[in-house]
Design a protein around this nucleic acid. Sequence first.
DNA 1: CGTTATTTGTGCGTATGTATT
DNA 2: AAATACATACGCACAAATAAC
Lengths: 249, 249
Amino acid sequence: MSTREHSGEAAYKVLARELRQAILQRRYVDGTRLPTEAELADEYEVSRQTVRRAFHDLVAEGMVYRVPGRGTFAAPRDGQYLRQFGSIEDLMGLSLDTQLEVLRPLRRKVDIDAASRLRLDSDVVHTVVFRRTHEGDSFCHTTVHLHPAAAAALGDVPELGEAGAVSDATIIGLLDTRLPVPIAEAEQSITAASADQTLADALGCGIGDPLLRVDRIYLTTDQQPVELAINHFLPEQYSYRVKLRRSTH
Amino acid sequence: MSTREHSGEAAYKVLARELRQAILQRRYVDGTRLPTEAELADEYEVSRQTVRRAFHDLVAEGMVYRVPGRGTFAAPRDGQYLRQFGSIEDLMGLSLDTQLEVLRPLRRKVDIDAASRLRLDSDVVHTVVFRRTHEGDSFCHTTVHLHPAAAAALGDVPELGEAGAVSDATIIGLLDTRLPVPIAEAEQSITAASADQTLADALGCGIGDPLLRVDRIYLTTDQQPVELAINHFLPEQYSYRVKLRRSTH
DNA sequence: CGTTATTTGTGCGTATGTATT
DNA sequence: AAATACATACGCACAAATAAC
């Protein structure tokens, strides 16, 4: 043994979690520098390499950014918005000026495919279907499948329980405040599909019309999937824009 | 210096790129184990830590997965042509495992819309149309409109001058080496469209089938647009995947 | 069933390079 | 110019999971 006892969990993971919590508790806001590698190594009685390992993960999560010669800083998080990694453009301003109208309220349901994409052991998910409107125009149809724990966290939201209810919330925004662990990232897949009867009715387009399909799986900081959202957008009223940059190193 | 010369790029990045290429060229399919850390360290004359650093990035990209005690394996790619294009480098690397077939060679053309999107004073652009294939399957139809200066830089590329020519290049890769100013960023817009006669013929799908349309405008470091690429993808064979994270600055 | 070899995972110490202040 | 702080790289030791014997 090399001076260090193995109490089950890796030292760099413990350190990463402590730093993550401190940042989420807003202890390093507005440009405050985090402790240096040497300081943390000293404080936690680990090597500087172990501190670096922890920071490496936090950088990958987007929790902090580092500048050679200056230090390590908490990445400011503006509310419940997610942005594309490495870009400056907003992902989408969905909740800003749009409304949500429930088509089928939140109910327990058996869906093998959705359950497996949420990495559940059982086949049971909780599902809610709604459409999103902007100034009266429907432009997006969404089916949301929830992890049981996530569904429990949303059980007392009246706007999701009855068909026809209207709200200006987002599921992900509700989840982020009600779950004990914050949402850290999402895996997004974009493809094209054609409108079936249900989608055509909800969106007011023709059957067979092309739609933009955007699937998103939201994950908490401990990589647990909690929500699978399947969106169908009308291409005339929505396109997904990103700015790509050349990486600096 | 510690026995190793610093030829500009980090050793772990060089190694990661080589491994990435090998995997994209399908050199480690169906459960074939990649070389062990010790073997790669030996072969590339780097330390085992440096090999681990490279693998760490490849795991984060989803290129490989690792099992303690067993080894490292290429991550299976479930049928589809799935690529994550988070940076310009990713787009330039598109040529690694795809081929380009010219449908309409590079010619001078009047196109008011394309010219305005390239912020040209005149209405004249230079246009080339091709399709991209992956292991024999056409999955993408592309129309590229070039700034006159960019077209001049590509004037001596024989593969673009005649219909039917096949190449494994990318336009953006060719431009980056031939233009005096490097490509710095791209503005990307994704939406859905239906296949018209031309697209259906090129991609082998039906007229009216839904396609994923991806427009990209490439800009040099001085914000000058040089290329507008309009891609149409078959959704069965392609989806656009991105990992989203909490916003960084 | 335990033993052993292989392979990845964690951790430390050290040295040097590079960007910022 | 010097100090500070992050980045890369090496070598070593031991732990833990896996597979073969």
